[in-house]
Amino acid sequence: MSNQSIGLSDNLYNYLITNSVREPEILTQLRSTTAKHPLANMQISPEQGQLMGLLVQLIGAKKCLEIGVFTGYSTLAVALNLPADGRIIACDVSDEFTAIAAEYWQQAGVNDKIDLHIAPALETLDRLLTDGEADTFDFAFIDADKNNYAAYYDRCLRLVRQGGLILIDNVLWYGRVADPAMNEDKRTQAIKQLNQQIYHDDRVQISLIPIGDGLTIARKK
């Protein structure tokens, strides 16, 4: 939930974008469309989308999960880096937001790679587990309602294969995780608790990086 990396001056951020981000035109167009949306700050930053695409390629991912779609920028960033037979199960509860996403997925020619589920994500994830899909996904991205972050992480850890990646967005939460004044905020507490849970979880290797609004990368051992 940050359309640029926090903690950087405008000049330094512009330098980062100018010298590192190779954003495909279709992603630029989607980002421009989303910028006009009242909830535009829910979109990930272009540098984060590029990192996600690179990670997908590095691990040779073919089977992906996404919890939280919004207007589909992260989904598209991943889909563009999947092979022809790659697939994403994308979970969201909004027909309105994902209608924008579907338009751009179609334009990009990746619509057949994306299986959109409009339903509470926990229902979809639990159904996948019931259907025997544990340990079969290569990559998962969590960027949805913060109060359910721990439950999403639990399901994704069971669904992702050994050596697969789970990415969790907003783990710095605009700096609120380090602000004692936010200790009573439920979403802040949920993120802080998950950060501690993952830190102590010896089933994964981790790196929390200050890109976007903070991104944890967890590799399942």
Rank of each mutant, 00 (worst) to 15 (best):
D95W: 09
I206Q: 12
P46L: 07
Q106M: 10
D115P: 04
D143Y: 03
Q48T: 10
G164S: 06
I44N: 02
D112K: 10
H37S: 08
L116S: 05
P24N: 12
P38L: 07
N183K: 12
E96H: 10
K192M: 13
L55Y: 06
K221Y: 11
C64I: 06
Q4F: 12
L172D: 00
L58Y: 05
I211H: 02
P210R: 02
R127A: 12
Q107A: 15
N195K: 09
L82T: 02
V21P: 02
D143S: 06
G86D: 08
A84T: 10
R22K: 15
D92R: 09
L125A: 06
D143M: 04
L116E: 03
Y153Q: 03
R158S: 14
D143N: 07
D135K: 13
E103M: 10
R22V: 11
G7C: 02
I217Q: 04
I17A: 04
Q189R: 14
R158A: 14
P38S: 09
L208M: 13
G86E: 08
L51E: 00
K186S: 12
D135T: 10
L129W: 01
I6W: 01
F97G: 06
P83T: 15
D138N: 13
D201K: 10
R158I: 01
P180T: 07
W105L: 13
D138K: 09
D131V: 05
W105D: 00
Q196V: 04
Q193W: 02
T98L: 05
Y199Q: 13
N3T: 05
L80A: 11
L128Q: 07
Q107D: 07
A90C: 06
E103Y: 05
L80W: 13
L55K: 05
S207Y: 00
H117Y: 12
A40P: 01
K63L: 11
N148V: 06
Q50V: 10
A178N: 07
G86W: 11
S32T: 14
I191Y: 02
N81H: 14
D95N: 14
P24H: 11
R161D: 04
N41L: 08
A102S: 13
A61G: 07
Y104M: 08
L30H: 08
L30F: 09
